[in-house]
């Protein structure tokens, strides 16, 4: 554990709390892509299959349980509790275009041909593109509530902070995980446009609006 990874994990935690707070205080999941949230459940469940077989630390286990539980809770909020505020007609990104290629990549690039290793690899690839339905929705509507942009910024910062963590681990432990690094760079890259607008508009007190 180093400071970058820890801050990244905190940022990831913060993003989830911000999202739940947004849904509960506005009593609405408007502007949130159900497809992205559903993919996150798949990401956490496939990645943390080792929860019952591998023990790393209390921290690691608690976080895994939290990510699985909170992502399921968000689906519940969107599909049951605040269902009328969820508008599937603007959440039109085709998720199968993400899952298919990620499954192929996972079969080619993995650290061992076992069910758990291939699913772990799939979860890494899938996470890297999981935000696309959400960003696509943002692009379509052209605007977002400020709280939603804080959620996205925290979520983007999480994987961005893992990059210095990987650099640090390379020099301090000689540890390299090429699958995570490649996918993590792609994942962070997808946020660059968003970050630009977030820093130049939202943090200057303006509303998040994309140019027409």
């Amino acid at each position: 554990m180093n400071i970058f990874r820890f801050l990244g994990d905190l940022s990831h935690l913060a993003s989830i709390f911000i999202l739940i707070h947004k849904i509960q205080t506005t009593r609405s999941c408007r502007g949130i892509s159900f497809k992205t949230q559903a993919v996150y459940v798949a990401v956490f469940v496939t990645r943390y299959l080792d929860l019952f077989t591998t023990f790393v630390s209390v921290y690691n286990t608690s976080m895994k349980i939290f990510f699985i539980a909170s992502s399921c809770y968000i689906l519940y909020l969107m599909k049951v509790r605040f269902r009328p505020t969820n508008d599937p007609s603007i959440d039109t990104f085709r998720v199968e275009y993400l899952v298919g290629p990620c499954a192929v990549l996972a079969l080619i690039f993995n650290y061992g041909y076992s069910v758990t290793e291939v699913l772990w690899s799939l979860s890494i690839f899938l996470e890297s593109v999981a935000i696309l339905p959400q960003l696509f929705m943002l692009q379509r509507t052209g605007e977002a509530e400020t709280i939603t942009t804080h959620y996205l910024a925290a979520l983007g910062a999480y994987r961005a902070l893992y990059i210095p963590n990987w650099i640090y681990r390379y020099f301090s432990e000689g540890y390299v995980d090429p699958i995570s690094v490649t996918a993590g760079l792609v994942q962070t890259g997808l946020y660059l446009d968003f970050f630009y607008v977030y820093f130049t508009k939202v943090l200057q007190g303006q509303k998040f609006e994309l140019p027409a």
């Binding site: 790393v56 690691n60 895994k64 650290y111 963590n165 995980d177």
Partner: peptide, 10 residues
Amino acid sequence: DPSSHSHDEL
């Protein structure tokens, strides 16, 4: 070598 990829990250 699976031990070098212990998946200790989240």
